[in-house]
Nucleic acid binder design. Structure first.
Length: 418
RNA sequence: GUGGGCGUAGCUCAGCUGGUAGAGCACUCGGUUGUGGUCCGAGAUGUCGCGGGUUCGAGCCCCGUCGCUCACCCCA
């Protein structure tokens, strides 16, 4: 194409019809379980003070060190397009005193997030997540419920070819004991400079390296799971027990690593089998130090982020998406100027009563309009001309059967509701 | 940041050892004066990503460039 042609910025996900319908469906499936569990909407800005993320997410993470969209606003403040949801929710909870009321505070959100990465299948620079956060309760039962809510979302879509990985990162005590031994172990490995630097920032990251020589070398590394304090272990055992009781199958993955520094205790990840390299469709965990880190009270929290784009990709990979699940109740074809006006009135009436109504504007040939009606998937069609308006009755055609019946315009609503 | 693949109509793609573009789908109109799906006919749509080079001649070969895509690092 010519270079003057405008196009979307690199690596963003866009959803246009008809696929946008599937996107909407997937997103709603992921949101509804949270609503049913008493979580309430929190709608936040897509940009925040950069410091929120450097402090909240952690400077050692790739997300913060090289993937943030950061810029200066006109007042010279450093602003960043949100790369994830939890930090912003914590900020708002503290700012609005939601942590002073009934606990836990249970919130859900849905929207766009941004990371300046090299795009690939299932990884976009602007992507969509649905997330929840439960703040102020460290009962293992809520860990299980949070996981169950995510699972219910995926199941509502119809997904089945995925697994749930869980582990516990323990409390601060558990982690520092493990870290000492892990660092010692890593020091015995022969690593390139970049990997060494990464290990220094967060040695756990090496567990997630996909290069086979690294994975092999890490086989004998000490596992955090073996360093859990009694309290952390007991908490984690309970979580597993509750998941079993819920009939949610899980896989213990002691090598699982999450990319954000705030995670503690229970962490989990949903991995889909049919996706490419970016197979994580959702994940989350506890973040018991985050509130305090951001200047709030010492409150624990747990939450998840689910990838809407990836869940859609997964649904398509499992052939779950029906191409035409949207249908209008009625399609009106007006013939002439008066009919056009009357159509608008009829449509407005019926829409007020809850019907989905489309009108074929543009004075096209009747055959073309019928074709458009057919394509739209409308259940019924009426042709509205002068004779119909004067007589007050129309031929209501049921598209599927082709049968028409004569009904008065005033009784359309009852005819459509049959 | 690193590596591979690919750029031809709105979409999916074909285009032979170089001879200045084609199919299917979709779209519009007609066959059928105010009733869709099938069928038949007609029509519209391209600076072959862009720039340069080789050649009598480039969609095809060469160089550059931009874009897309997949993978690595990492993540939803």
């Amino acid at each position: 194409m010519a270079k003057a042609k405008l196009q979307a910025p690199k690596g963003v996900s866009e959803y246009v019809p008809p696929r946008s319908r599937a996107f909407e469906f997937v997103r709603d499936c992921l949101i509804n379980p949270a609503r049913k569990a008493g979580y309430q909407l929190i709608e936040l800005p897509v940009f925040e003070d950069t410091e929120l993320f450097t402090r909240g997410v952690g400077e050692s993470t790739d997300v913060v060190s090289k993937e943030m969209y950061t810029f200066e606003d006109r007042g010279g403040r450093s602003i960043t397009l949100r790369p994830e949801g939890t930090a912003g929710v914590m900020r708002a909870v503290i700012e609005h005193g939601l942590d002073r009321g009934q606990l836990p505070a249970k919130l859900w959100y849905s929207g766009a997030f941004f990371r300046a990465e090299r795009p690939q299948a299932g990884r976009y620079r602007q992507f969509y997540q649905v997330g929840i956060e439960a703040i102020g309760l460290d009962d293992p039962a809520i860990d299980a419920e949070v996981i169950a809510i995510a699972d219910a979302g995926f199941k509502a879509i119809g997904l089945s070819k995925y697994r749930l990985d869980i582990t516990s990162l323990g409390d601060a005590q558990s982690r520092s004991a493990h870290r000492v031994d892990l660092v010692k172990f890593i020091a015995t490995l022969d690593l390139d400079e970049a990997t060494k630097a990464r290990a220094e920032l967060n040695p756990l990251r090496l567990f997630d390296d996909k290069r086979s020589e690294i994975a092999q070398a890490m086989q004998g590394a000490p596992l955090l799971m073996d360093y859990l304090s009694d309290a952390s272990r007991a908490h984690f055992e309970k979580v597993k027990e509750y998941l079993d009781a819920l009939g949610i199958s899980w896989t213990l993955n002691p090598r699982m690593v999450r990319g954000l520094d705030y995670y503690t205790g229970t962490t989990f990840e949903f991995v889909h089998e049919l996706l490419g390299a970016q197979s994580g469709i959702g994940g989350g965990g506890r973040y018991d130090g985050l509130m305090a880190e951001l200047g709030g009270q010492e409150l624990s929290g747990i939450g998840f982020g689910l990838g809407v784009d990836r869940a859609l990709l997964a649904a398509e990979a499992e052939s779950l998406i029906e191409s035409d699940d949207f249908v209008s109740d009625l399609f009106i074809i007006p013939l002439g100027e008066l009919a056009k006006r009357t159509s608008l009135e009829i449509a407005a009436q019926l829409r007020k009563l809850g019907k989905t109504v489309e009108i074929a504007f543009g004075d096209r040939a009747l055959k073309g309009a019928m074709k458009a009606a057919d394509k739209s998937g409308a259940k019924y069609v009426i042709v509205l001309g002068d004779s119909e308006i004067t007589s007050g009755s129309v031929e209501l055609k049921e598209m599927k059967s082709g049968i028409t019946s004569s009904v008065t315009i005033d009784s359309l609503i009852t005819a459509l509701s049959k």
